[in-house]
Design a protein around this nucleic acid. Structure first.
Lengths: 345, 345
DNA sequence: CTGTTAGCGCGTTCAG
DNA sequence: CTGAACGCGCTAACAG
């Protein structure tokens, strides 16, 4: 037997009527059965399943003390498996704390992000994990403490100037510098840079690391070999292909994220198809599946996106000891990818 | 100026008091300002920003007529980029309809799925998109219409016996059969099968397609060459490696999903590293990034996971014309992957 | 145009 | 051990 369609959702009242008790007895039974006669509890549970009753969590969270059990997660580009993995990390920790995640995609757009966060807060999320969209400080007012109605915020991967929230970020400069040095150490001097927008926090920092390694080696960064506009694999591939056609093409590339590394790899592979030489070496920031199959010499500056998500969530659940935000940096590691050492997750 | 911390969240009442009007005037202003003097509206908006007010959507959805604006999405394995992509598709369509998605990971576990869905319904989701976890019909009672409290349900990728919901699935048999035939047509007779649990709908159907192609070619399926337990790349690689060590190894493999195809590829690549011959050919169901870099001959039975998600969501939003569920089948296409035709998304 | 009343589903508080 | 009353934040419906 099911609630007659059209009569609206089943409520405690309906269950109470069905079981011949008061709504309070139902509520108490659902809450654990403290102070309710076992026989009545059984009656109630029978009615619950008979009517297909589900407690209204929204109404529940309306009451003082009770909370929504929701965590809002805003991502900039769900199309990148990297962020999917990141979201898994957050979900994993949230589930462990009995929380559900509300997921939204900002598409690297500050206005969409603002709407997302306003909505999340409107839904009474207990916390926010945000990978902030690229853009100026002025466009980030919605992340200011005053606009969050007291909702705890953890930034991931990127910091926002003027926003004093907790955050988990990567050692972008150090990783980029170390990665670039791998190329310098084997004698490369003509090294290209493929990255994302300089308005993106990580884009800025990774370029800094790259530049620092170059200047420490006494090399100039050739503007012709720097492309910083690619947000997806296709545009990265095109940018790399264009550089390969230069009179004096690069002998190596530093790619600031996995979209650009993959684009570079495929462009080089296609270009070299006609010749026999191995082509430019690639160093990429971020790991990715099947890196072991790279047809070109590849070194990765790796970290675990899922762990980034996990740490962000853990920071959220950790009691805020101080008022000021805690910024945690996750280390990265250099891995030279060899085709015969295929280690796949 | 921000609401003094500790005084609880800002409500319409607070805004009303601050603006010197009644709560109704605030509510009306927020609702579009119909029948409110412009001057008062301005006052209200000023107070809203001054206090950092966010309308409580949960309380709002409590009122009859209003709905939650939430869609619940249950996935079996967020660790597979395939499902991340699927989730993106759902999110995309949901966002277009002004809805937010609530995401949960069942980890291929029916009990976790049951909890997820109960929670989703408790949160008053307007619809459910579910990739059902593997398992028997008996474990799927929570998907029966009677248990859903009238919440519309769309199944994706897999059907569940006994559950008469709308669904978007793939042409699993047809795709597997056509894929297998690619191998048969070039003369292979000793073809291995790598798949996921036969308790998974797609696992069952794709094996059927494979078997049909084999028997139509007058070939027996050698039980020694059938492995159907691998859910991730690592176990798939191990299974493939074991088969390569057989006295009479397979000359080709049909992999029923991308985890198994990748595992097979890497195992073959590692094994062939010592010899010079190309090794067994691979046909895989599902596409994946960097397939073009495969060191072994590869053909894919492809479709777009994101589109699967989109269609599932669209089916959810489409007015249910009939009571019975609509089952839509998405076609797949065969693509021979060539390294020189690298087409990356 | 504006304010008052009432009730959505639930659980804490207080009476029985 | 059980039930009745009240109010969480919000907004239709009904005054004024």
């Amino acid at each position: 037997m099911v609630a007659s369609p059209g009569s609206g959702p089943v409520t405690v009242k309906d269950v109470a009527a069905h079981a011949g008790v008061s709504p309070m007895t139902v509520s108490r039974t659902l809450g654990g059965g403290k102070n309710v006669r076992p026989e009545l509890q059984e009656l109630v549970w029978k009615s619950v399943t008979a009517l297909g009753y589900h407690r209204n969590e929204n109404a529940r969270s309306l009451r003082p003390g009770h909370s929504s059990g929701l965590i809002g997660v805003a991502i900039t580009n769900l199309a990148n498996p990297y962020y999917g993995d990141f979201a898994i990390g957050v979900e994993e920790v949230a589930a462990r704390h009995g929380r559900r995640i509300l997921l939204g995609n900002s598409s690297e757009d500050q206005e969409r992000e603002r709407q997302l966060i306003a909505d999340f807060i409107g839904r009474q999320v207990e916390g926010l994990v945000v990978v902030p969209a690229a853009g100026g400080e002025t466009g980030s007012a919605h992340l200011a403490a005053g606009a969050l109605a007291g909702t705890p915020l953890v930034l991931a991967s990127r910091l926002v100037p003027g926003i004093d929230a907790s955050a988990v970020i990567l050692d972008d400069q150090g990783g980029a510098e170390a990665g670039t040095r791998v190329l310098l150490d084997v004698g490369h001097t003509r090294i290209a840079y493929l990255g994302n927008l300089s308005s993106v926090f990580t884009g800025q920092r990774r370029f800094e690391g790259f530049s620092r390694a170059m200047s420490e080696a006494g090399l100039e960064v050739d503007a012709e070999l720097v492309r910083r506009e690619q947000q997806d694999v296709a545009s990265a591939r095109d940018a790399m292909a264009a550089m390969l056609r230069l009179p004096e093409p690069p002998t190596a590339v530093f790619a600031a994220n996995n979209r650009n590394a993959i684009g570079a790899m495929t462009a080089i592979a296609a270009h070299m198809h006609t010749g026999g030489d191995p082509g430019p070496s690639v160093v990429g920031f971020d790991g990715f599946e099947l890196a072991e199959l790279s047809p070109v010499p590849l070194t990765l500056v790796e970290h675990d996106a899922r762990q980034l998500g996990r740490r962000a969530a853990e920071l959220l659940f950790a009691a805020p000891v101080s008022e000021a935000g805690v910024v945690e940096t996750i280390p990265v590691r250099i891995r030279e990818v060899r085709r015969d050492t295929a280690i796949v997750v």
